[in-house]
Design a protein around this nucleic acid. Structure first.
Length: 259
DNA sequence: ATGTCACGCTGGGCGTGA
């Protein structure tokens, strides 16, 4: 099974680059985040023309997650319920069973600043994920992929000095919350194939961050009950393309899994 | 250089979020 996770930063704005992604990688499943579309605006018909069926949790202006599944694969037991979610009004979680694999697309809250009210909500969201995933991992093959808004290790940050006291994404509690998911019996797919070295997935739009290598690895795929045979970050998708279609600030991560 | 993008509301810029 080939799975891609991609924070599109608006599916409407990114639409010209969706066929490009599907052509380039021919994924079985795509986990999308930040679709920023209302449910009645979700492009189900256009995706069907590309050979994909979508299930989604949509909100409108902000957030929004989806699973795109290649036509012909079995999809069952779709749910956007995350018990204990501290922000249930925000569309940040969708899961379904695809060909017997429980797959979730997640958009973890940003957290903004450690001193803000949003930081503890981020930690509570990650704790809710742990509680939800514990029985799922115990039950069978599982993938949870998306924008975790946490850089798990120092090597996942271009410069720690850019994250002084009070900055999120690199704090001990955030990293411990992600480690607690791994401790359920999951592996961080990128680190399963490449234990050391940069594999950034996000670069700020500002300041020429992509060109300067100022990135973070915050888009993760955690896997249980399956082998990980390859993981690549599609950096071409972060560049401007020949047609001038703007990129997301996140690159897609392509994950190959084996039974 | 906090230097960009995308949204909604608007009636051509601003507030919000990342």
């Amino acid at each position: 099974m080939r799975l891609v996770t991609w924070n599109v930063n608006s599916l409407k704005a990114r639409w010209p680059r969706v066929p490009e992604l599907l052509d380039a990688h021919a994924p079985d499943v795509v986990c999308l985040q930040e679709t920023k579309l209302a449910a009645d605006a979700f492009p189900h018909a256009a995706l069907a023309e590309l050979g994909y069926v979508a299930v989604e949790s949509s909100q409108g202006r902000w957030n929004g997650v989806a699973l795109l599944v290649r036509e012909g694969l079995t999809v069952a037991d779709v749910s956007d319920e995350l018990p204990g979610n501290p922000v249930p009004e925000e569309a940040r979680w969708i899961e379904a069973t695809v060909e017997g694999v429980r797959v979730a697309s997640v958009y973890v809250p940003n957290g903004r600043e450690v001193a803000s009210e949003w930081y503890p909500r981020k930690l509570d969201f990650l704790a809710a994920m742990r509680d939800r995933l514990a029985p799922v991992v115990a039950a069978g093959p599982t993938v949870v992929a998306g924008d975790f808004n946490v850089a798990p290790e120092d090597q996942d940050v271009w410069d720690l000095a850019a994250f002084p006291e009070g900055a999120t994404h690199v704090t001990g509690p955030e990293r411990a919350a992600v480690a607690a998911l791994v401790d359920l019996g999951m592996v961080d797919a990128q680190r399963a194939v490449q234990p050391q070295g940069e594999a950034f997935t996000w670069w700020d739009y500002r300041g020429g961050a992509f060109h300067r290598g100022h990135g973070l690895r915050i888009d993760l795929a955690l896997v249980a009950g399956l082998g990980v045979t390859a993981v690549t970050v599609d950096r071409d998708a972060r560049r401007n393309n020949a047609a001038g279609d703007k990129p997301s600030d996140h690159a897609p991560v392509v994950v190959d899994l084996s039974r």
